[in-house]
């Protein structure tokens, strides 16, 4: 049941416990309890929105940074990852397989700000062997949502 509830919330975080109760046939207070518990144990991390900031003329600069690191005895990549993700500028941090190890998504107000973060904070961390910075030029799709030119469903008003 919890998976069903989480699926509904992931799609629309504003769905109320009462609505979920109707959709799943679980009593409303039971749904509320499950959600509370999921918030408490951090299964649900946060409720947020997907916003197209360009619409209000507020453009943030985003960069994807490939980071090559030397793993350390006992802790592997985790301690270096932690040193990186503690910076609020690092919005997402992932460990990947392949030619580099960590992928860090960085947001800043200007290109300069992002570049400064990489050169002054990220690259000098002990164990970081090299970085490659890719600035994001255009966002087409975010979390499953197409930003511009989403197709309309055109249907006749009544079909028997």
């Amino acid at each position: 049941m919890i998976k069903e509830i989480l699926k509904i919330l992931e799609n629309d975080a504003r769905t109320t416990a009462k609505q979920i109760s109707t959709m799943t046939g679980t009593p409303s207070d039971e749904v509320a309890k499950i959600i509370k518990q999921a918030e408490k144990d951090r299964t649900i991390l946060k409720y947020k929105t997907i916003i197209n900031w360009e619409k209000v003329g507020d453009e943030q600069v985003w960069a994807l940074i490939e980071v090559k690191v030397a793993p350390q005895r006992d802790v592997g990549f985790d301690s270096i990852a932690e040193r990186i993700y503690r910076f609020p500028q690092a919005r997402s941090v992932y460990l990947l397989s392949g030619t580099y190890d960590l992928l860090v998504l960085v947001a800043g107000k200007t290109m300069h700000e992002v570049a400064d973060f990489v050169s002054q904070k990220l690259a000098p961390i002990e164990g970081v062997q090299g970085t490659v910075t890719h600035f994001m030029l255009k966002r087409y799709k975010e979390d499953g949502e197409i930003l511009e030119g989403r197709e309309e469903i055109r249907r006749q008003p009544v079909i028997l």
Partner: peptide
């Protein structure tokens, strides 16, 4: 009923017998 339907704007239709997914 169909003729009437065609003359009214801004309706919510529960009258469509097909998916709303492309």
């Amino acid at each position: 009923f169909f003729d009437l339907l065609a003359s009214i704007e801004g309706i919510i239709s529960l009258g469509i017998g097909e998916p709303d997914f492309a």
